[in-house]
Amino acid sequence: MKQVFAKPKALNDEIMHYCPGCGHGVAHRLVAEALDHYDITGRTVGVAPVGCSVLMYDYFNCDIIEAPHGRAPAVATGMKRSRSDLIVFAYQGDGDLASIGLAEIVHAANRGENITVIFINNTVYGMTGGQMAPTTLLGQKTTTSPYGRNFNTDGYPIRMAEMLAPLEGTTYVARMSLDKPVNILKARKSVFKAFEMQINNVGFSFVELLTICPTNWGMDSMESIKRIQDEMIPYFPLGVFKEKETEDYI
């Protein structure tokens, strides 16, 4: 009998601190599988955000640096520019990337930095206890939108993949969902592609992953999965928004 599914080597054996059902575990696994697949763990540096996944350095077997809140793309830029032989990826949540770090992500993308960014969108701040995120859906109640997100006062949920895809500097932009096995397989392909882009020096790659946060949504895992399908995917459509074959300039 042959083992057909095992934990990727790029992850260690620590029990992850994430809440039951939390999407970070699967997202970590997909990144780790890419590191295994391309055999790049030994030359990869990850940039951890501020948020629940700040502790990702406890789980990966590659080097990881912690960036100030929102500044992961700038830190990644500094590393990649100085050591282009390294594979550099930033792993950021929705508060980190789409709120406080919006300037950094847009400009790193626009400069076409040859880095990979994994963006975890679960429509809520996790670590701080469930506040409104820039991706919080209209009507969604959080601890700082207690009456439901209202576009008059809070604006609209921000679609990052669609925002970054038109930038000339980006080469691969996709949004995937971790709600069911078939979508996880597609997401895996996408994460692989994003790293491949970097390995081939094609340029800035970005994968947004829709994930659940049962704790801060106040739902059980199954209700949370249903929420991705019923509420998130209709607003945050899945797909590859941009894919260049080679580096090209206009």
């Binding site: 809140h69 929102g70 709120s99 406080i100 770090g101 919006l102 701080t128 206890g129 506040q131 409104m132 820039p134 601890t143 700082t144 939108s145 207690p146 009456y147 006062t153 809070d154």
Partner: peptide, 24 residues
């Protein structure tokens, strides 16, 4: 966090404005 959470709850009742800014 209880400060912004309190203000997001109470200010609308006082005709005030609560904004969760994108950064400090």
């Amino acid at each position: 966090n209880e400060i912004p959470e309190f203000m997001s709850r109470e200010l609308p009742r006082h005709d005030g404005e609560f904004v969760q800014a994108e950064s400090e």
